[in-house]
Each structure stands twice: as structure tokens, then as C-alpha cells.
Amino acid sequence: MITTENLCVSYNGRTVLRDATIEAKPGSILGLVGPSGCGKSSFLAALNRLTEIIPGASVSGRIQFDGQDIDTAFPSSVELRRHIGMIFQKPNPFAMSIRRNLELPLREHGIHDRQHLGQICESVLRDVGLWDEVSTRLDQSALNLSGGQQQRLCIARAIAIKPQVLLMDEPCSSLDPMSAERVEQLIDSMRGQYTILIVTHNLAQARRLSDQITIFWTEDGVGRIIEQGDTETVFNETSNAIVDSYLTGRKG
């Protein structure tokens, strides 16, 4: 679904990630783990070209979507981001009502019919398990929701425009354990419908959620991929000493 080849990311000429080559299979969950600062977020941002709006960032290498270069597959970044959604570490609902939060991107993508909008809102809110909690206050500010609810709203907002791929950057790490678990279940239930790339610092979570796993490491200040494969295989029988000590909590 999404593959990269020798992807490099640099900020103001300083390379922070080099030669990242991955393959995310359709409908599967790919976990991305590694110590802080090794370029995971930068990697995700390169995939939906969010690096374009980060001052000083530049990307080289190949990114393919469904076997096509993303530059030829999509005429514009806007179009690309419609197909590759993103969830951030900190929930970032807009300072508007819950309904507006969901409708704004939909209107942006050409859906104006009231009824249709209402249907989509309801169905995505049900998908993320938020409907029962917010159906009576759709017109209140989204900022009044709890952190976990906000994050689920952001996921709802992202899936409302029906992307095929979802990039998640530590989606649970700013949430309390209960909300985190709720969001984790949600992600688990999305397996098969979306191709998900998820960054997490919680190795247990990575193990529970992901089908494949990619491990990043920093060497001389430059991030690199040092191991990847099926999650269980990597956890049980890696031959790489660094990976082994990282996964067993002795390093990183």
C-alpha cells in the first residue's frame, strides 16, 4: 500500500533520518518504534508531505502509494492528504463545535448536502465509539471534551474523509490509561479497513497492535532503520543485539 525507498529527511541541511525503506501492507498495522529523536515523526510527516509546511524540512527518496510514485499518483498535496490521514500525539480539534470539526473537512472535499453530512458525522462518531457520549452536544465546543474523547474525535475527523492510510504519531501518549486503552481498542478494530502506520513508545502496545514492526535507531545523530519484520518474529527471535536489548528494555 505504502512503500518507501531510501527516504531521507533533513532540517536546514542536517539529516535526521537516512535510507528508510519500509513496506506497509494493505489493511495491516505497521508499528514504528525507537528511541526519542530518531526521526519517527519526521518519517511520518514525509509520507503525507506535511514536511512541506515545516520550515527548513526537506525530503528525498521514493514514496509509493499502491505501486505508484506519490508525485504522479496525486496531483497535489491536498489530494494526497485526503488519502493519507494523520493523527497527532496531542489531540488537535479545532476551536469549534464538534459538528463543525467533522463537517469542515467534508465540506472542503465537496460534500455540502446537510443530510449526507449528518449521516457521515453519525457513522464516524459511532465508528470511534463517541456517538453515545456526544450525540446530545454536537454543537458544543470540541475543546470541552476530555483528552481521550478529543483524540477519538480527531480519529473520527480523519476517517470521515475516507482515507486508505492512517498515520498515527503516538496517538495514546498524552492520554490517561483508560482513554489510552479505549483508543487502542479503536485502532485495533480498524485493522483491515485502513493501512495504519503507528508510532509508539509503548513496546507492549506495539506488540499488541502491530502486524509488522520497524525499529528505528540513532547513530551519530542520524536516524536509521535497524530492524523490521513480523512483530512476533522480531520480538522473539531477533538476531540484532541492539534490538534485543531495546525490546527487552535494557536500552533506549
Binding site: V78, R81, F88, F94, A95, P105
Partner: peptide
């Protein structure tokens, strides 16, 4: 304005003018 709003809007596939019109100016 919080950078996250702008990045969030961009990640939802909103174009530059839409971000300015719907997120930035109201915010």
C-alpha cells in the same frame, strides 16, 4: 496560533486558502 491546528488542518487535506479562511482568520 497553535501550530497543531494548522498542521491538523493540512493533514485533513485542506488547501492553503481553506486553512486561512476557516482556521487561521477565525482563530
Amino acid at each position: 496560533l497553535p501550530r497543531e491546528w494548522i498542521q491538523g488542518a493540512a493533514a485533513l487535506g485542506m488547501g492553503r486558502s481553506a486553512i486561512v479562511g476557516w482556521i487561521v482568520l477565525p482563530g
